[in-house]
């Protein structure tokens, strides 16, 4: 790549004349690695980038730090070839998408090359607190519902691999990212020996043996998967939505028992209660009340009762439930 040699000696320049610009070089290889903070996305991309560089390629590895650590999404673009310009992979131009988490893999699918892109994804699900916020009875989990079979039907070449379980079986759940490196290695030109050498530099010394096992496991798995005739479904346990019943939520407030302590008002998750002018609790926004029972459970004086008429039977079935 061209460089202005801006060292101490060249602070003075000659009159600026145009020079020939770069001819369109061969296309780089684009690998997008994604996951959730703490999963080891950056380690995977560093190992790949260092390997590509050792083979004499121009390499750019680009990620965004900052919020990532705190459970947010993490992604790293690795591009290598004789000439690499943009540090980021343009949408629709990733040759390989490696995902360490299921929903993150789905998020980045539009970046994959439609005709030839390879999708390698752990079926590990990390459900964020945001997906579990709806307290209404019958509310579903807000997590991706696509199955591996559906996804495979939409990509040129797709692998859903239970890498986390495979790593667990080796005795170290944290080696899941290396199982995926093993799978990735079969799609690139570098030899297994080169990979193993690169890996040894990037994993903690004590874990080299288990990580090399993880690498081989991922590599063998994908070789078998390629030749397998039957389309075995990788396990992806969906949390079923609870049966949506027509619950009739009703708050029964006994004003005489309310001593204006305010606890229910402050702790109602939907913030739908308030103290009225007599400083007695009232339901200010009935449409927001989910019937979660927190106010009933927290009121020291039993001034609030929550009625969920449709579920009386279930309550009776609770261990220790009397009434």
């Amino acid at each position: 790549m061209s460089r202005p040699t801006a060292s101490t000696s060249s602070i003075e320049g000659e009159p600026l004349r145009p020079t020939a610009s770069a001819a369109k070089a061969r296309e780089p290889m684009n690998v997008l690695i994604v996951g959730v903070g703490g999963q080891g996305v950056i380690m995977v991309s560093k190992a790949l980038a260092s390997l590509a560089q050792s083979k004499g390629y121009q390499v750019k590895q680009s990620e965004v730090h900052g919020m990532a650590k705190r459970g947010g999404t993490v992604f790293s673009h690795v591009r290598f070839g004789p000439q690499v310009w943009s540090p980021t992979i343009p949408k629709g131009e990733a040759d390989i998408l490696v995902a360490l988490e299921w929903a993150e893999g789905l998020r980045w699918l539009p970046f994959l090359k439609a005709e030839t892109g390879i999708f390698i994804c752990d079926t590990k699900r990390i459900v964020p607190p945001f997906a579990c916020l709806n307290r209404r009875p019958g509310a579903p989990l807000r997590y991706s519902r696509e199955t591996p079979a559906e996804v495979r039907a939409h990509v040129a070449e797709g692998y859903a691999i239970d890498a986390t379980r495979m790593a667990e079986e080796l005795g170290n759940e944290r080696a899941a990212n290396v199982v995926l490196i093993g799978a990735l290695s079969t799609a690139l030109e570098f030899s297994a020996a080169d990979w193993e050498q690169a890996l040894a530099q990037f994993v903690p010394k004590k874990t080299i043996a288990v990580n090399l096992d993880a690498f081989r496991l991922g590599r063998n798995w994908i070789e078998e998967e390629r030749t397998a005739v039957d389309d075995a479904e990788a396990p992806l346990a969906h949390i079923p939505a609870p049966a949506a019943a027509p619950y009739n939520v009703r708050l029964e407030i006994t004003p005489a028992w309310c001593k204006s302590c305010d606890i229910c008002v402050k702790l109602c998750p939907e913030r739908c209660l308030r103290l009225n002018q007599e400083r007695i609790v009232e339901l200010a926004q009935p449409e927001k009340c989910t019937g979660c029972r927190l106010c009933e459970l927290l009121c020291p004086d039993f001034a609030i009762r929550v009625h969920l008429d449709a579920v009386a039977k279930e309550v009776a079935a609770m261990p220790g439930a009397k009434a």
């Binding site: 009875p137 989990l141 949390i239 998750p269």
Partner: peptide
């Protein structure tokens, strides 16, 4: 699990280690 009444009080913390399980009570996870 058997004692959890799915009140979601703990979910008010937003702790990422807390998620919904498969079982439900009164329609809530």
């Amino acid at each position: 699990n058997a004692q959890c009444n799915a009140c979601q009080s703990c979910m008010n913390l937003g702790c990422p280690a807390l998620t919904w399980g498969a079982d439900t009570f009164e329609g809530r996870h």
